[in-house]
Design a protein around this nucleic acid. Structure first.
Lengths: 205, 205
DNA sequence: GACACGTCTATACTTAAGTATAGGTGACTA
DNA sequence: TAGTCACCTATACTTAAGTATAGACGTGTC
């Protein structure tokens, strides 16, 4: 019997999904309310086949939580679940090693299919996230950013100063200023606050 | 057998909650993906006992959707469900006539109890939204802000400069700097970007 | 090889942001 | 009446943010 661990901070969502999976299929479902709790449970027993992480859960810090989970338990399959994330986040998650991406716009039946798919060793990414025409516009803007610029933007989204970003990325402050200037013009905004707000609005980080 | 209609745009959340309610209790559960769909279903059959509306669903437009539902079907009990809303939203919803407020931090068992409670004619409002100490802390922080500081913060949340804010509020730029400085220390953040992100995170603007 | 591109750094500059201190006004209050 | 407080302004300052220009390095491409 496959063991599944669902981590979501919304008790209601988590428990009902767990209950549904257990009744519909022959799954053993465990639950956790945040990333740390999930990792603790994983540590206790090494028999988890699939870990499902909510993207907006405490401890996740964007896709950093995905990396943590994968680093600690490389053998376990990890899927990301989100109600708000867009294509960019999903693709980034997949390229960063997620085994599946589960939008909450999925039907309950499709969820079961997706889980079986991932459990069988495949990687699952739905290509249609329902109606999101406004999001596609934003994708183009962010896709123009280089790797370094994206990393810089990520730090802007925590409200860090150029000096702090420089320290975190191990580069000079002038270089950070360059990255900031370039990403501002690429995103067509006029200061770092607007850049951070835009990225947050699009749920990039 | 009580008839319940759940309206939520996340198929996964909606269907699993519905499935859970049907298996655990003797409920007849219908579902809708948005407000209009919910109202259509209500129109087709007048036997719905409880309507559960997701706060962030298409068509809701804040609490306006609650009013619409109540206006069209005054006899039906209406509860609001939300994963992000804070105490203020919940209280406002209750004063505007909602029969219940269901945070998604509720456990599945509590949900059933809440539904039974509402169905029996009571009005349900949980006073603790699960683990949300950060929210209560934040509420206190923002309540310390003066009227002008709040207006300033609102403009920060659009990424405006001090000069632009000064023009909008018809005051000098120095005064804006003063307001910014004071609100930064009251919110315990170190720059305008962090202030804007904090306010956005708490859904203030 | 020439070229484009991303990355990093340096110098130099302008403008914006944020701090500090001081003082004036009006409203409300003990 | 004296005190408090939100609000506004002024001057002066330091630091941060953002722009501009130029050069160096590596990678990959035509």
């Amino acid at each position: 019997m496959p063991n599944i661990l669902i981590a979501d901070d919304h008790d209601l969502v988590r428990d009902t999904i767990a209950a549904y999976l257990e009744t519909v299929e022959d799954f053993e479902v465990l639950t956790a309310a945040n990333l740390n709790e999930a990792l603790e449970i994983m540590g206790g027993l090494d028999s988890i086949d699939l870990l499902i992480l909510d993207y907006n859960m405490p401890g996740m810090n964007g896709l950093e939580g995905l990396d943590r989970a994968r680093a600690v338990y490389p053998a376990c399959k990890v899927a990301l679940m989100s109600g708000v994330a867009n294509r960019d986040v999903a693709k980034t998650a997949m390229t960063r090693g997620a085994d599946g991406f589960i939008p909450k716009s999925l039907t309950a039946a499709s969820l079961v299919n997706a889980i079986k798919f991932v459990l069988s060793g495949e990687r699952y990414l739905p290509f249609d996230f329902g109606t999101a025409p406004s999001e596609t516009k934003a994708e183009g803007e962010f896709s123009k950013l280089s790797a370094r610029e994206l990393q810089t933007l990520e730090q802007l989204c925590v409200g860090l100063s150029n000096k702090e970003i420089a320290r975190n990325l191990n580069i000079q402050e002038v270089t950070v200023k360059l990255h900031v200037k370039n990403l501002l013009s690429k995103l067509k905004v006029s200061n770092r606050t607007q850049a951070a707000l835009l990225a947050k609005e699009r749920h990039l980080f």
